[in-house]
Computed example of a mutant assay.
Amino acid sequence: MPRMIDVATAQYPIEAFHDMGEFHAKAERWVQNAVNHGAELLVLPEYGGMELASLLPAPVRDDLRAQREALQALREEALATWWSLVERHAVTLLAPSMPWRIAPDRYVNRAWLLAPGRSGFQDKQLMTRFERGQWGIAPGDPDHGGGLKVFDTPVGRLGVLICYDSEFPLLARRLVEAGAELLLVPSCTDTEAGYHRVRWCAQARAIEQQVAVIHSPTSGEALWSPAVDINIGRAAVYTPCDHGFPPDGVLTRAHDDTPGWQFARLDLDAIAALRETGQVDNHADWQRQLTRLEIPIETVRLR
């Protein structure tokens, strides 16, 4: 039997809440909607958890450094909310990431991957200038379990590349070599240029490694937030450009900035078979390219 999975990837708005009850209601509404469409794997974006900062006093919320610490008091309840929905609906879900304190004055960008009876987290590996500078968010620390991981889940073996991480092909290759069948790319970008960097790199990773890539961005304006005030992106599912898949590699992609889910059905066996029967051998030729790099470069002066 083919291994078919129904996926939902969120184009997720950062919204302001009056209390945690409003957050619980939003999470329940979003998960229920995806489940109603038959989704088994739900992917939510990078820094979607920053909407919890709307519950902080204004002076704390408006201070990039102070909000990191204040959010720690809310993180366990937020995680428990997503996990209770996962248990209730028997789905696999990548929860929205948020700053996560792992040591005094050390915060990482952590996304939790949840399935019934099990959980794990992926920390972002490479930080943008804004994260490591103004915001003070650090890369994952191997001493705190912050390296790359492959997750065995009910829907397959998954790897997570958080936003900027997707722009580095060696990280994706490491995950695929470790057995990842599907790559998840949660993102948060505030310009069209940033969105397109992640979008095209996600597509490149799908082509290079002959896997599907699920992209979930934040969307819309949250002008009350100094961290995630403007959000631009389109939720999508990308595949290799090969037999049985869209010629442009776009299985689904949002047409505009309307919040909501994008749904798709993926045949993991059909994607894996491309490594043996596809028009090209990108996955295998990754190693072959390395032998070409051993040949010295010749400088040629045209005459």
Rank of each mutant, 00 (worst) to 15 (best):
W135N: 01
A193W: 09
Q125W: 10
E87T: 07
T92W: 02
F17R: 06
H24F: 11
G244R: 12
P186N: 09
V250Y: 04
V185P: 00
G136Q: 10
G120Q: 10
Q72R: 14
V150W: 02
G49K: 13
D152P: 06
H215V: 12
R197M: 08
V7N: 07
L170R: 11
G220K: 12
G136H: 13
P259A: 01
D229F: 12
T92G: 02
P240R: 12
G220Y: 07
P246S: 07
R199C: 07
L302E: 12
S219P: 02
V237F: 12
G49D: 04
R205Q: 15
A284N: 14
L183A: 04
K124F: 05
D269E: 15
G179S: 07
A58I: 03
D105T: 03
A16W: 10
T291D: 14
P59T: 01
A178R: 15
A70M: 08
A70F: 05
V228D: 06
G146S: 08
R288L: 09
E276S: 13
D63A: 03
D242L: 05
W224Q: 11
R106D: 00
P96Y: 10
G179N: 11
D123P: 10
Y238S: 01
S216T: 06
G49S: 08
P104H: 12
T299N: 13
D62G: 01
D123H: 12
D285R: 15
P226V: 00
R303A: 10
H196S: 01
K26Y: 10
L266G: 01
W83A: 04
P217G: 01
D269L: 07
A272L: 05
A39Q: 05
R75L: 05
W200F: 13
G21R: 15
G194I: 02
Q279F: 10
L42E: 04
V35E: 06
E28A: 15
A103M: 05
D242W: 10
G159M: 07
N231H: 11
G194A: 04
M4N: 11
E76F: 03
R29K: 13
A264K: 06
L55G: 03
A264P: 05
R132M: 09
W135M: 02
R174D: 11
W30I: 00
C201H: 15
R68C: 03
E87F: 04
W224R: 11
E69T: 02
E192A: 09
I295N: 12
S54C: 01
C163Y: 04
D285N: 15
P116T: 02
G244F: 05
F263R: 13
W200C: 01
W200H: 14
I214G: 05
E177K: 15
G260W: 12
I207P: 00
V198E: 10
R199H: 15
R265N: 11
A212P: 09
D256E: 11
G249E: 04
D285P: 00
G179F: 07
D105C: 00
A16P: 09
T81Y: 09
L56G: 07
Q32K: 15
Q67L: 11
T191W: 06
R301G: 02
D285S: 09
W224P: 04
A178S: 14
A39T: 03
F23K: 06
L290K: 14
I102W: 02
E177F: 05
R265F: 01
E294W: 10
R68H: 11
F263T: 03
D152G: 09
G38R: 13
R110Y: 10
T291N: 11
G249S: 06
G194R: 13
